[in-house]
Every structure is written in C-alpha cells, then in structure tokens.
Design a protein around this nucleic acid. Structure first.
Lengths: 238, 238
DNA sequence: CGGCAGTTTGATGTTACTCAATTTAAGTGG
DNA sequence: CCACTTAAATTGAGTAACATCAAACTGCCG
C-alpha cells in the first residue's frame, strides 16, 4: 500500500486530524516509507467493527463509506453518538486510551485505516502540527457531544431530527458533490431513531410532516432539502 | 496568595488535572514563586461566572463550592452539562480554545483559581505528567458527555434522575466525609430538571416515588441514600 | 407576622410510545 | 421480466409518560 493510494483512499484528507496524520506520514515517509505503521481493513454493511471495552493498539480512521459510533445498553437500547464519514477518526480519545468506550458498526460497505497508536504518539511529540490537530479534534468531539446532550435533553422530536440533519448536511457536502440539494443519505429510520432517542414509528411521522410542509423528503438513499431556512428555524441550537 | 494557601484551597488537589498543574506550580515555584501566573476570584451563589463565546486568556478551576456548566438556548431553555465540584477544571477544552463553548453559574458561594493559558502550555511542553493529566481529563470529559447523551436519549425520567445521582455520589464522597449515607447536596429541583431534561414538577414527583420506595430522601441540602443497590438497578448505564 | 422561594399535589393536555395492520420498496430466484 | 420473499416505511387506534397550569403547602428570613 503506497502513499498515493493512501491519499486517494481518504476523500476528506485535507481537513482535520486525518490530514495532519497523513501529512506526518508524508514527512516521515521520506525516510521510512512502508514502515508498516498503518494498514487497511474493509467491512460490509451492518458489520460490527468495534465493541466497547475492546482493546486495540491501533487508532482507526474511516476511509470510505458510512459507519456509526454508539453506546450499547444491556437491555438492547443503544444511543448513536456519531455518524462517521470518510476521513473521520473513530474518536480522538482512542489516541490516549487503549480501550474503546463505545462500539462501532458499518452502515454501508466501508474501508478503514488503522494507525499504530505508539507511532502516532511519536510523531505527535515530533510534530506540533499533529499536536494541534489532535487538540482540535478533541475539542470538536467534546463540543459535538455537548450539543447532542443539549438537543436530547431540551428538544422536541421535530427539533431533534432537524438538529441531526443540520449537523449531517455540511459534513455530507464536504465529501460529495451536491446538486439540487440532494444529499446521499444511507441511514434507515431506525438509525435516526437511535440517534435522537425516538422510536422509528415516530421518526416516520415527523418525516411525514416535514414532507407535507415541503421542508425535505427522503427516499432511495437520497435526502432532498427543499427549505433549509425552515429546517434551521426548527433545529438550530443558537 | 502563597502555595500553601493554594493547596488548602483545593480539597481535591491530589487527583486529576488540578493536581498535575499544582505539581507543576510546585516545581516551577522553586525558581519563580509568585510569578503571577495564577490568581483567585470568588463569586456568590447564583452568580454568572462565564458565558458562551466569552474569550479569556485564563483556564479556570473551581477551588471551593459548587457551580455548573451549561448550554443556554435563546428561548430560555438550558442544558446543564456538568456540575462542577472543588478541584474540577471548567473544561479541559479551555486549555486549547480561547472562547468558552458553554456558560457557568455558581450554585453556592464559590472560589475560583485562574491559570494563564500560555503558562499551562509552556509547562505542558516541559512536563509530560501535565500532558498526561490533560489527556486524561479530555478523555474523561468526552466519556462523561457520551454517557450523558445516552442517558438523555434512552432513559426514562426515573432512570435519568437515578443516573444523575449515581454520577454525583462518588464525586461528592471524594470531597467530603460521608456518614450514614448523607451527602451534602445543594441542588434545587430546577437544576436537576435542567440537567436531565425534565420539568421541576416531574422531578418532584419522581423524588416523591423514590422517597416512598425508601430509596432516598432529599431535604435541607442533604441527600440521604437508603438503598444504593436499588438506585443502581434503576440508573446504571452498564 | 408577612413575603418569598421552593416543593408538593391535583386536574387536565400533549407528546411520543406501543401494538398491529397495511403499503411500499428491495432483493432473489426462476 | 415476473412471482415470491423480506425488510423498511407508513398509517391508525389506543395508551403511557411527561408537560402544563394552578393552587396549596413548607420552610426561611426579614
């Protein structure tokens, strides 16, 4: 696996942590290309990629496809904490902790990149831009989590779903060419339900309302947003 | 303000980030005592200590009293993200970001310690134990936030309140001598409501149930836990 | 004693859940 | 390409959980 294919692999490589790590690779690779400090895996849709308390010496980044990170309760309920898109690290906390505090499942077919934690640490100590990128990713994850808590604690069903979509839309747009407000959207209503703390039945009703009010429509894995302003009025945190 | 009074000031100074920073102070102070890199403030109960988007060159740690960190919505709703106890940093993210993403209010009379961010960074670069402490604090905050999201998204009213209390109890116990399961507890039901996403009226009803079932009682700023096992059965995440 | 903030209680309303049936969409093998 | 199968989404009816509104009660402090 060469550097070129690695870069092609990561559509969102310019931004965020992934970019900094790959930058670090580029620098480092001048002297030690193919050092084996990163490798690749794939998984099919629905496949479990990681479980809570699992120990790994690697830090994972999603290269292609969609996945989600969640917290599983013993009675079957689960809270989806984040939808992972290409370029996303599972969680910056995995750089510091050997064991996952969450589980991960593939939503579509995915490809993963695994970096050796020990090597990330070495390169972090050597390169302050990696340090900054990690700090930034930690702050972003914390902020996201706080906003999610706020939405779950304070918002109505309508508001929560709008919030979730508003959170996803710019992230999807950063990774795909969007025409006519049509966003690739592989989530089932069950996933949305588990992310916003509602039942799939109620999610369906809310989507029905959004459709009637000509705010958005969802079909065949495509989300079409026809009234973004209205959606923001409903689901924005500010 | 001398080092001795600083240490007296921080009852939970041995643990966590506060300890590491004070350790760093002790080391540093051999050469530059009274360098003015940290200073102290106080606030009365109910006073606003920080607001979202506020920019500060300091990183704050609570020295005495209770406070809470929350996200304020424009329509008056708010989500309490964390109750701050002596020794708690407002948020590790404030080490990396100049602006707060949250607001903070004093719950009781409080004393605060403010560390210059620039100095923390210097000492962080110099001392790997500070680095580790910061990383650990970041991981802990992220984990807490994920668990809160899970509780808010998946739990019933009863479960959420039990979860909140179970989260607070060991934190209170680490800072106070506890006899006969009586915990100092300055929260009003309104605070509990804002923390778990319920109305104060409903919080009162749930507490009434807990009282009838002889699980716990709350009065005069004291929480008395008479059946911890039952409380854990209700509100534990595992 | 009066006033205030916080809690409790009751009555009623709304939101979202549950259960079950139906429709739509997505595969699958002939 | 079409019957058959299966998963997902939609719809309706009934119910449970929590919110809202308002009144009464408690403890506290001037």
């Amino acid at each position: 696996m060469t550097l070129v294919s690695l870069c092609v692999t990561c559509p969102n490589r310019e931004a965020g942590l992934c970019g900094a790590l790959l930058g670090a690779v580029s620098e480092a690779s001048k002297s030690d290309q193919n050092s084996g400090w990163q490798h690749f895996t794939a998984a099919r849709a629905g496949e479990q990629i990681a479980v809570r308390n699992q120990v790994s010496s690697d830090v994972f980044v999603l290269c292609a496809g969609w996945a989600f990170r969640y917290y599983q309760l013993s009675d079957g309920r689960r809270q989806i904490l984040q939808f992972l898109l290409p370029g996303d690290i599972f969680s910056p906390t995995t750089i510091f902790e050997k064991a996952f505090y969450f589980s991960v499942k593939a939503l579509t077919q995915v490809r993963l990149s695994a970096f050796a934690r020990s090597e990330i640490r070495v390169r972090c100590a050597a390169d302050s831009s990696v340090q900054r990128a990690i700090a930034k990713a930690c702050v972003a994850e914390t902020l996201d989590a706080a906003e999610l808590s706020t939405a779950l604690g304070q918002f109505s069903a309508e508001e929560r779903i709008a919030y979730l979509l508003l959170h996803l839309i710019p992230r999807i747009a950063a990774r795909n060419v969007i025409r006519e407000q049509r966003y690739p959207f592989p989530l089932r209503q069950q996933h949305i339900a588990d992310a916003v703390g509602l039942t799939p039945v109620h999610v369906s009703r809310v989507f029905g309302q959004f459709r009637e009010r000509r705010i958005l429509a969802l079909s065949e894995g495509v989300l079409t947003v026809s009234n973004l302003a209205e959606l923001e009025k409903i689901g924005s945190l500010r």
